[in-house]
C-alpha cells in the first residue's frame, strides 16, 4: 500500500489503522494531530480508522508560539 506522509512517499506492507501508523513511525501521541485527505481524524478514532491506499496523511504537532 502506498501513502503520502507529510508529502513523503511511504510504502506500507499491510493495511493499517491510524494508530498503527503512528506507532510504526514511533511518534509520541501527546500534542500530535492527524489529518487524512484534509479531514482531521480524532484520537478516539485512530484505533479503528483504516488508512486507505493513496491517502494523503498529514501529521501536525504542538510547538511554541505566541
Amino acid at each position: 500500500m502506498h501513502i503520502m506522509l507529510n508529502d513523503t512517499p511511504l510504502q506500507l506492507a499491510t493495511n493499517c489503522t491510524v494508530a498503527e501508523l503512528v506507532q510504526q513511525q514511533q511518534l509520541k501521541t501527546e500534542g500530535l494531530a492527524v489529518a487524512i485527505d484534509n479531514v482531521v481524524i480524532a484520537k478516539q478514532h485512530w484505533g479503528k480508522h483504516q488508512v486507505q491506499n493513496n491517502a494523503q496523511v498529514q501529521l501536525f504537532q504542538i510547538v511554541t508560539g505566541g
Binding site: 509520541k28 500534542g31 500530535l32 501529521l59 501536525f60 504537532q61 510547538v63 505566541g66
Partner: peptide, 17 residues
C-alpha cells in the same frame, strides 16, 4: 499560548507538553 506546525519526520519531537 502554543502553536501548531507540520511534523518534521526527520527531526525528533519536542517534549514540550
Amino acid at each position: 499560548t502554543l502553536a501548531l506546525k507540520r511534523l518534521q519526520l526527520d527531526q525528533p519531537q519536542d517534549d514540550l507538553l
